[in-house]
């Protein structure tokens, strides 16, 4: 379709003007700034408003908090990425619980049916969060595949309080996504939802029915 390409670009070029580009005044984004503790509060408020649940944890005990949650909720199979530091810590703790850990360490084609039908929850780390609207920043990849946070009915996500950014705009810049974004990057604010039937909100339409954030209170001076 190179003919189409040439024809389209020719038409656009013929119509292009050398009008000056309007300037971008980003002050309205820049002034959205909060203290670290206020960022945690805003993120929680925003995400809880769309049914995200939070578990309180500390750097040293989050795997136990997560394990206890899985036992309490009767989660039998938990899918996770075994290659991350968090994954290794999780594996060490979960070995003694009733929840079976299933590593996501082979191409999806080898266990697609199982993924869709036999996994109760998926665990991922996050790159941080967004305070303004409430959201998690997730960058799937080889160690934590893309479907880990999507297909299992429950998504458990590890978030460090110190990694919460003010806004999506500031996060994109400080994570360097504006220069080199990962092949897939996400902002996630809650469990999957729809309002397509009479504008009535319903959760768990295609993706996870529940989103559980394990919030690690790692801000300096924060009481755990």
């Amino acid at each position: 379709m190179s003919d189409a390409r040439a024809a389209i670009l020719a038409r656009l070029r013929a119509a292009s003007t050398d009008n000056p580009l309007p300037t971008l005044d980003t002050a309205v984004l820049e002034r959205r700034r909060w203290s670290p503790t206020e960022r945690v509060k805003r993120l929680r408020r925003g995400m809880e408003a769309v049914h995200t649940e939070f578990l309180e944890a500390r750097t040293e005990d989050w795997p136990e908090v997560l394990g206890a949650f899985c036992e309490r909720e009767g989660i039998k199979t938990l899918l996770y990425g075994p290659g991350t530091e968090a994954g290794r810590r999780l594996a060490a703790v979960m070995a003694v619980t009733a929840t079976a850990l299933r590593p996501y360490d082979a191409p999806v084609e080898t266990f697609k049916d199982e993924l869709f039908q036999a996994v109760d929850a998926g665990f991922t780390t996050t790159l941080g969060g967004v305070a303004e609207t409430g959201g998690l920043l997730v960058a799937p990849g080889p160690q934590e595949p893309r479907l880990l946070s999507l297909v299992p009915p429950v998504h458990l996500a590890l978030l460090r309080a110190s990694a919460i950014h003010d806004t999506l705009w500031s996060a994109i810049r400080s994570l360097g996504w504006d220069q080199a974004p990962p092949p897939n990057a996400l902002m996630i604010s809650g469990p999957s939802k729809t309002a397509d039937i009479e504008q009535t909100l319903a959760y768990g339409v295609h993706g996870p029915r529940r989103l559980i954030v394990i919030l690690v209170h790692d801000l300096p001076g924060t009481p755990a």
Partner: peptide, 24 residues
């Protein structure tokens, strides 16, 4: 559009499954 501060997902796709990826 819907009076939401954010949607559930903002999905940024910058490439297909890489050699070492398990899905996508």
């Amino acid at each position: 559009a819907t009076g939401q501060p954010a949607t559930t997902y903002l999905n940024l796709i910058s490439g297909p499954r890489a050699k070492d990826e398990m899905d996508g």
